[in-house]
Amino acid sequence: MSNNFSETEERQELRKAVRKLAGKYGREWFTEKARSGEKTTELWLEVGKNGYLGINIPEEYGGGGGGIGDIAAVCEELAAQGCPLLLMVVSPAICGTIITRYGTEEQKQRWLPGICDGTGTMAFAITEPDAGTNTHNISTTARRDGDEWVLNGRKIYISGVDEAENVLVVARAEDARTGKVKPVLFVVPTDADGFEAQPIPMEIVSPELQFTVFLDDVRLPADSVVGDEDGGLVQLFAGLNPERIMAASFSTGLARYALDRAVSYAKERTVFQGPIGGHQAVAHPLAQSHIEVEMARLMTQKAAALYDAGDDMGAGEAANMAKYAAAEASCDAVDRAVQAHGGNGITQEYGMAGLLVAARAGRIAPVSREMILNFVAMHSLGLPKSY
């Protein structure tokens, strides 16, 4: 009898292969790259070459023909080896999913192979300084000019623009028939005239930078629009459930890495009699985090299974819950791992403290815990909308 609570043998083998690949690089290599301002391109391209980067994209475009659960497993195992690749959330999972679902045949042929092999990474730009999570307040505009579109506006906290060939930008266009504005998705080359990106200094230890993006009369051909320009929010949200599932996997991967390090340390470090892991004050918090992380992983698995089965409603609820649970579990796990290390937990040598900001970001991005609680209160519990 099949058991829905354990992953398929194929998925387990995939995890093992990714672990092995990422293990060749490891946390020290990753941190060194981040601190010296270098990139993790070598790892990114090797992940792509092995077919893991586009594992969720159809085979005819260079992908693996798998589901969101497969790419989430890759993302988690990379993070669990100390090499969290944030652009995996963005390029194959958000952009890859939206283009696969809504792109024309020509657009799929043009952009998906590069997303799969890592040579044509695509960033995603939705957040704005004055809109935050409120997609209805987006002020980046797109207006028609003959056969072209002209984009103007500003985006903030856009990951990895310097490593991307293109950015999938969410803009607002006016509907000629109704006069109402609607969201439209555009693929914008990062070398386009009028496109400018400035790095935002962050406290996070990561080779992947955050940017403010300025769009100043950026001219685009008509075939830059992905999907139906009247498709609206449905097309946009097609990438957001995968984003939440990936963010959850990113968080649980980080948590697993921190716990592994803390457990190893607690087995070896001796104070008073025997290793510190023999004391309940050290052992219990780590055990508690292990339980919380495993629960979050199970919810992430459920969200991915629902999404891959085409149940968008069920996946929306589960993806939000998974993302919430994973961020909470990760913050607590990293904090407890730092505590288990004592003073060593805040040294560069042991590399624990740098994980605090990375884990904490999961409570804020890509959607804040408060907005998830709003979603669950309203959609799961049927309470009145509060915002």
Rank of each mutant, 00 (worst) to 15 (best):
residue 229 E to R: 11
residue 249 S to G: 13
residue 307 Y to K: 06
residue 278 G to V: 08
residue 320 N to Y: 01
residue 230 D to I: 02
residue 270 T to K: 13
residue 269 R to C: 13
residue 305 A to G: 08
residue 279 H to E: 11
residue 236 L to Q: 12
residue 257 Y to P: 06
residue 296 A to L: 00
residue 280 Q to G: 13
residue 231 G to F: 04
residue 273 Q to F: 06
residue 236 L to T: 11
residue 262 A to M: 07
residue 311 D to I: 13
residue 234 V to Q: 10
residue 279 H to W: 07
residue 282 V to G: 04
residue 230 D to N: 15
residue 300 T to G: 12
residue 289 S to P: 03
residue 239 G to Y: 02
residue 225 V to W: 02
residue 313 M to W: 11
residue 259 L to C: 04
residue 282 V to I: 14
residue 248 A to T: 01
residue 255 A to E: 05
residue 253 G to K: 09
residue 271 V to Q: 07
residue 218 V to S: 06
residue 234 V to N: 10
residue 319 A to Q: 04
residue 275 P to M: 12
residue 227 G to S: 10
residue 296 A to H: 03
residue 251 S to M: 15
residue 248 A to M: 03
residue 260 D to Y: 09
residue 311 D to Y: 09
residue 267 K to A: 10
residue 296 A to P: 03
residue 270 T to S: 07
residue 217 D to T: 07
residue 276 I to F: 04
residue 227 G to D: 07
residue 291 I to N: 02
residue 303 A to S: 04
residue 246 M to C: 15
residue 303 A to E: 02
residue 210 Q to E: 12
residue 267 K to V: 07
residue 228 D to M: 00
residue 210 Q to A: 09
residue 308 D to H: 09
residue 235 Q to C: 01
residue 210 Q to N: 10
residue 216 D to H: 11
residue 237 F to R: 12
residue 211 F to Q: 09
residue 305 A to I: 07
residue 242 P to I: 04
residue 313 M to T: 15
residue 292 E to S: 04
residue 254 L to T: 10
residue 285 P to M: 14
residue 247 A to K: 08
residue 218 V to Q: 06
residue 293 V to D: 03
residue 258 A to H: 02
residue 222 A to F: 11
residue 220 L to Q: 05
residue 228 D to S: 07
residue 290 H to R: 15
residue 218 V to F: 04
residue 258 A to E: 00
residue 240 L to E: 15
residue 277 G to T: 08
residue 225 V to E: 06
residue 258 A to F: 00
residue 310 G to L: 13
residue 218 V to G: 04
residue 230 D to K: 10
residue 242 P to N: 10
residue 284 H to C: 05
residue 228 D to K: 01
residue 304 A to T: 00
residue 219 R to H: 11
residue 213 V to E: 02
residue 228 D to E: 04
residue 252 T to M: 02
residue 279 H to T: 11
residue 266 A to N: 02
residue 235 Q to D: 09
residue 247 A to G: 09
residue 305 A to H: 03
residue 262 A to V: 07
residue 285 P to N: 14
residue 231 G to D: 08
residue 261 R to E: 15
residue 311 D to H: 13
residue 291 I to L: 04
residue 221 P to M: 09
residue 222 A to V: 14
residue 302 K to N: 15
residue 244 R to K: 08
residue 276 I to G: 11
residue 310 G to Q: 09
residue 227 G to F: 03
residue 314 G to Y: 13
residue 224 S to T: 05
residue 314 G to E: 13
residue 226 V to E: 01
residue 268 E to I: 03
residue 313 M to A: 13
residue 256 R to L: 12
residue 241 N to A: 09
residue 262 A to E: 06
residue 264 S to C: 01
residue 290 H to V: 12
residue 214 F to I: 04
